[in-house]
Design a protein around this nucleic acid. Structure first.
Lengths: 247, 247
DNA sequence: CAGTGGTCTAGACCACCGG
DNA sequence: CGGTGGTCTAGACCACTGT
């Protein structure tokens, strides 16, 4: 068995390398749920890093739900059920994949528009100053309609996205991260119940008046600038929203 | 103006005291949104604590959304909009209060029962071994019905809750924390759309077939034991679910 | 360049838990 | 009692930012 160690010359921080090592130990079953992992002082000598660094790695894994502390006893691996589905800012694509469905899309619109008042407000745009990118898509899971998504993006003057790029990548967030180095870091989301109007009914292939789940989300960059306002109308019979809350 | 300092003899950890001080500075407007707060080295001398302790306090406030770092520039106060509504495991009562409504309840049932199969599964109970506490309540906001809540609690043999206790406190989580020292620390929650049957319609005072928002939640203790499985049927016209996501 | 946060070290003392 | 995590110190070097 190959010894896995922390490389002090790697550009990746030690606490991050260490967290990866521990995650692998758990995934391979070397350290089991409800069992204690080695103590922080043991980990110090095992990986030749200071306790502060150890604790930084553990804090990360605890926040992600993989481990938990018990005072005076040790650090333990979480039960299987609690290891997965960590709170994430999931894109629709990631969301579908995590449910075992193949994500897909039909792009209905991709254009630059003047933002509606509600959108301008959520994106905190100055009136009549800025135009935004509007993307409307039918979202598919295993080829069947799941939701109707309308996204408004507040990009810079010279920044834009083409239909081809969006079709090739599928995931909008992957695209803006790669192209513009914008990393989503927080979001406000509301969920409520509504019913299908004629247009939604036809696009989602449900009867008019069918119950739908409406999600509205404002997305923020690391520097706390509003990037996107997106609404998704989910078919009530094909979608269940899932979230992991941690304190 | 009174000088606020960190008391090294307090039982409250310094980083926690410091976080409170900083939170107050922001709330009082001494430090403003989008403005940098003093640098970590300045805070060291200001409050006479080490930089590690400073960073521990800042990390807490950043996780809560009050502050954010910008590399090479400083630490900043988040815009107002991002300061409130921090991700929490809110109880219904806390939830209502944060919306400016007075929480209320009508207790329909409080009894010890054999758990239904679905509940036993979510609470990970051994078959036929354990009885659980069932609480059914109509939940009110400003006196009007908002939701129908059914809660199943997996308590110890000698642990129980009386109607009086529940009526007096209102908040179940406050009660179990105080009485049994059980602190909720994580939850899995799903949200989906459904329609009112005859019983729900009558209790929530809506027409049969009205769209409802169904929340189902499993709550976990610090030691990763399942404590509660709770479902809430919200009136679609009176409730909007809100969540803050952070990475 | 000087100032910022990002990472890391090698210690220390404490409260809590089990035998 | 010895072992655990919880807190805290006083340093250090780094990469990134602005001027």
């Amino acid at each position: 068995m190959s010894r896995i160690i922390v490389d002090p010359f790697d550009v990746v921080p030690k606490y991050y390398q260490l967290a990866d090592i521990i995650r692998q130990k758990v995934e391979r079953g070397e350290w089991s749920p409800s069992q204690p992992i080695p103590s922080e002082r043991q980990l110090e000598t095992l990986y030749n890093v200071s306790r502060t660094t150890i604790r930084q790695a553990l804090a990360m894994l605890i926040r992600q739900g993989l481990l938990y502390h018990e005072q005076g006893k040790g650090t333990f691996v979480s039960p299987q059920k609690l290891q997965k589905g960590i709170l994430e800012l999931t894109s629709f694509s990631e969301d579908m994949r995590s449910r075992g469905l193949v994500p897909g899309q039909v792009i209905l619109d991709l254009s630059t528009v003047e933002p509606p008042a509600k959108v301008a407000q959520h994106l905190e745009l100055k009136p009549d100053v800025q135009r935004v990118l509007r993307i409307e898509r039918i979202r598919l899971g295993d080829g069947k309609p799941i939701g109707l998504q309308v996204s408004y993006l507040a990009l810079g003057e010279s920044q834009t996205i083409t239909r081809e790029e969006l079709e090739n990548r599928g995931s909008l967030y992957a695209l803006i991260q790669e192209k513009f180095h914008i990393i989503p870091s927080a979001a406000d989301e509301t969920l409520e119940v509504t019913v299908a109007g004629p247009r939604e009914a036809s696009l989602l292939q449900v009867a008019e008046g069918s119950p739908l789940l409406l999600s509205e989300r404002t997305l923020w960059s690391q520097a706390r600038r509003a990037i996107e306002f997106v609404s998704i109308l989910y078919r009530g019979d094909r979608y269940r929203y899932y979230i992991r809350l941690t304190r």
